[in-house]
Nucleic acid binder design. Structure first.
Lengths: 247, 247
DNA sequence: ATTTTAGATATGTGATCACAAATCACGCAA
DNA sequence: TTGCGTGATTTGTGATCACATATCTAAAAT
């Protein structure tokens, strides 16, 4: 029974991924009464984003509940939210949900939408950044380059998103930022894979656009900012298209 | 106690809005085993979109459960999904959710994002529509104009979205369509209000762009299609901006 | 041997109960 | 009258139980 075995292995993965964060931690102080359902949601989300829960992994309510030490109820609400976010898909009516896995084609579509949105966001952001924003971007850029040197993939991606987030947020349209943020979420697992490969092959073309974008923001050069983000995202899309017809 | 009274009135509204669809209907046949949680979600969603559940209305789990004739559990999952869709907001940790109400400023932001996305979608769609797509668009356009004449606001809006949906879908990027669709969802309550006013004042500027877009699609004129959707959405945004400083 | 069907198991989903947190009301004190 | 505190009510949230449905196993029939 190979299916059984694979499932068991996957459940081991899930356990490893979920119990880590807050297993035996003392409650400490929680100024905002934290909801169990939210904690489960966060745990599942980061587990999916890091790739610890690979695409296709089944999300069984009882298993997850036992692993995080709650009943099934908060798990169900968490899974419902994951579905709406696009991180999980319900396979059928009474068959539960699995971690969503994107085909390369779907990822290309996502990157196309990201391009149209982020080009606009970069244009608006570059025209409106404050000096403090530029400082933030500079700090994030430095942190990112340090993380890349030290091969901390996850941190590098976080810093990259931080940099762009401050730029886009400066544009003054929170809705635009929200939509982009959700697309980032769906891209994350792929980005982790791609960045890991890039770091292992000492290919730093992934991290070159950011300093240039920073300089464009510092100069309030909206034109240059749009050009750079466009190039960055089209090259990312081209990397994806290479995967469509592998070698 | 004025708060109590207002709540009671609102609950009456909710009841009227929810029991209509499927109160005493016999189960009939359901080829796909329909989930109660999904039914509740649909009921709440359409109630919100029609404006029967106005922005700010509290969504109390027990009340909604009693009205739709279920327990509180499916209601909770439905509300969680509504939150993630942006149709409801949780006010605090143990204080439940209310129907989200958008400020005019937020709506303007939504329309800005819609503009950037739909302009792109129209460009891609106009270049790729099939003859069958054009036929569909033509039918939707005719239905819309008939509905406008007969002052059926809801139907007119549905047909309008149908027309654009076939155009945008022809572009071949389902992700793009999904994002736009979600933004439409959030705009709906406002669109209902705006369209109702327009129809009452015999102002049909709302419905003039669609035939032109249809013709652009028929001619596979991507340039014209982008121009028209841009104009349509900017004029919608300008109507919104007029509401920022009322008269 | 292949297909089908019946039972068994696993698992999602709905209902009910119980608890916790927040708001409200009332009352007391300054 | 105003401020604060305490009890009561409301309401969201979590746990447990019960059921429905799907999948799987195995046996039987053609």
């Amino acid at each position: 029974m190979p299916g059984k075995k694979a499932d068991a292995a996957q459940q081991q993965e899930i356990k490893k991924a979920l119990v880590g964060p807050q297993s035996g931690s003392s409650p400490a102080f929680s100024i905002t009464p934290t909801l169990v359902a939210d904690q489960v949601y966060e745990a599942l989300r980061t587990a999916i984003l890091t790739g610890e829960l690979a695409g296709g992994s089944p999300l069984r309510v009882r298993d997850v509940a036992e692993m995080v030490g709650t009943s099934v109820m908060p798990v169900r609400e968490a899974i419902r939210r994951l579905e709406e976010t696009g991180l999980a898909t319900r396979v059928a009516a009474h068959r539960g949900a699995v971690v969503r896995e994107f085909t390369v084609g779907e990822l290309i579509h996502i990157y196309e939408v990201r391009a149209t949105l982020e080009i606009e966001a970069a244009r608006r952001g570059a025209a409106n950044v404050s000096d403090a924003d530029v400082d933030r971007m500079e700090a994030a850029c430095a942190r990112m380059q340090k993380a890349v040197k030290e091969r901390r993939v996850w941190d590098a991606l976080d810093d990259d998103e931080d940099l762009l987030r401050t730029l886009y947020t400066a544009g003054g349209n929170p809705v635009l930022m929200d939509v982009i943020e959700n697309l980032w979420l769906q891209c994350r697992p792929y980005k982790v894979i791609g960045a890991t490969e890039a770091i292992e092959h000492d290919d730093d073309s992934l991290w070159t656009p950011q300093p240039a974008i920073l300089e464009a923001a510092r100069a309030r050069d909206a034109k240059a900012a749009t050009k750079l983000t466009k190039e960055s995202l089209t090259s990312a899309r081209q990397r994806l298209e290479k995967r469509l017809v592998p070698r």
